[in-house]
Amino acid sequence: MVTDKSVASALGNIQDKPLLWQVGAVLAGTVFLAAASYVEVPLVPVPVNMQTLAVTLIGAVYGWRLGALTVIAWLVEAALGMPVLSGGAAGAHHFVGPTAGYLFAFPLVAALTGWLAERGWSGQRPVLAFLSMALGNAVCLVLGGMWLAVVIGPQDAWTFGVVPFLAGGLLKSALGASLLYALSRRKSPKSE
């Protein structure tokens, strides 16, 4: 349950909505995440895209349970062959390739940012929202980098799978915190 009043107002208490409404929110979240996957800079072995921004926003807006469930639904779509991964990629083989660690980290990232948002790290507290999203990006890089180290070796994993994403992770965290702040300002009446 969301404990911060301004965050609860901004989130619209998605967790308290009827089941059909929540299913619609999950589907909308998977579409948002798929769209973010198409915004990319193709690098090898891991492309730069807007997925982590989408994953952290979904977690912060939906809460930890529904956020993680939404990301898992998106991963299932990908495994079933829907073109929802980076650049429209699809298929189960991505879950054993170089990007597998990042993909498996995404539900944890959504859960982390959602859990923190439920505790006030969102909305009217943009610095905490930024820190929440930065932590989510860090978790993604650590888990993704660890798997990539198994695939291509530790030095190359660090060089190609972590370092190129550090600045982008901070920028996406700032953008995500700004979007949450704007959302909370729009949905919450200003209290004096």
Rank of each mutant, 00 (worst) to 15 (best):
Pro164Thr: 09
Ala177Ser: 06
Val23Ile: 14
Leu179Ile: 12
Trp158Gly: 01
Val142Met: 10
Leu66Asp: 03
Ala25Pro: 02
Trp121Asn: 00
Ala25Cys: 15
Pro18Phe: 07
Leu75Asn: 03
Gln51Trp: 07
Gly114Ala: 13
Thr159Tyr: 10
Ala89Pro: 07
Gly67Tyr: 01
Gln124Arg: 06
Met1Thr: 12
Val127Leu: 13
Trp147Ala: 00
Leu175Thr: 06
Thr113Ser: 06
Pro107Met: 07
Ala92Leu: 15
Trp158Phe: 12
Gln51Asn: 13
Gly168Phe: 08
Ala182Thr: 06
Ala10Val: 04
Gly81Gln: 15
Phe104Glu: 04
Leu69Gln: 06
Gln15Thr: 08
Pro126Glu: 05
Leu116His: 03
Ile58Glu: 02
Gly91Thr: 04
Ala54Tyr: 01
Ala117Leu: 07
Thr99Val: 13
Thr56His: 02
Ala90Gly: 04
Pro107Thr: 11
Met1Gly: 09
Gly114Lys: 02
Val127Ser: 05
Thr3Gly: 08
Gly24Gln: 07
Cys140Thr: 10
Val39Tyr: 15
Leu108Ser: 06
Gly176Met: 01
Ile14Phe: 05
Val39Lys: 11
Ser6Tyr: 00
Ala10Trp: 00
Pro164Phe: 06
Tyr102Pro: 00
Leu183Ile: 05
Val39Gln: 14
Val84Gln: 04
Val163Asp: 05
Leu80Asn: 08
Arg125Met: 01
Trp21Gly: 03
Lys187Ser: 08
Leu171Arg: 13
Trp115Asn: 07
Ala35Asn: 11
Phe32Met: 15
Lys17Tyr: 03
Met50His: 09
Ala134Cys: 15
Val31Leu: 15
Leu128Asp: 00
Val39Pro: 09
Leu69Gly: 06
Lys17Leu: 13
Lys190Glu: 15
Leu171Gln: 13
Ala177Val: 05
Asn49Met: 06
Asn137Tyr: 04
Gly63Leu: 07
Val162His: 09
Ala182Gln: 11
Ala167Tyr: 11
Val41Cys: 15
Gly168Asp: 11
Gly67Phe: 01
Ala73Leu: 12
Trp121Ser: 01
Pro45Met: 03
Trp147Phe: 11
Arg185Pro: 01
Ile152Tyr: 03
Ser184Asp: 10
Ala79Glu: 06
Pro164Ala: 09
Ser122Asp: 10
Leu53Val: 08
Leu75Tyr: 03
Ser184Lys: 01
Leu183Cys: 08
Val84Lys: 02
Gln155His: 08
Pro47Glu: 05
Arg186Glu: 08
Val48Met: 13
Gly29Asp: 07
Ser132Gln: 06
Val163Trp: 13
Leu128Pro: 00
Gly153Phe: 09
Gln124Thr: 08
Gln155Trp: 12
Phe104Thr: 09
Gly67Gln: 03
Leu180Gln: 03
Val142Ser: 06
Gly91Asp: 08
Gly97Phe: 03
Leu103Ile: 14
Leu53Pro: 00
Trp115Lys: 12
Leu11Trp: 00
Asp16Arg: 08
Ile14Asp: 03
Ser132Phe: 01
Gly153Glu: 11
Pro164Ser: 12
Ala149Thr: 14
Thr30Phe: 02
Ala105Pro: 04
Val151Asn: 05
Lys187Pro: 02
Cys140Leu: 10
Ser86Ile: 05
Val163Gly: 09
Tyr181Pro: 00
Lys187Asp: 08
Leu20Arg: 07
Ala92Ile: 13
Gly114His: 02
Gly169Asn: 05
Val162Gly: 05
Ser188Cys: 13
His93Met: 14
Leu80Ser: 07
Phe32Ala: 15
Glu77Gly: 10
Tyr62Ser: 10
Phe130Ala: 00
Ser178Met: 12
Val41Leu: 15
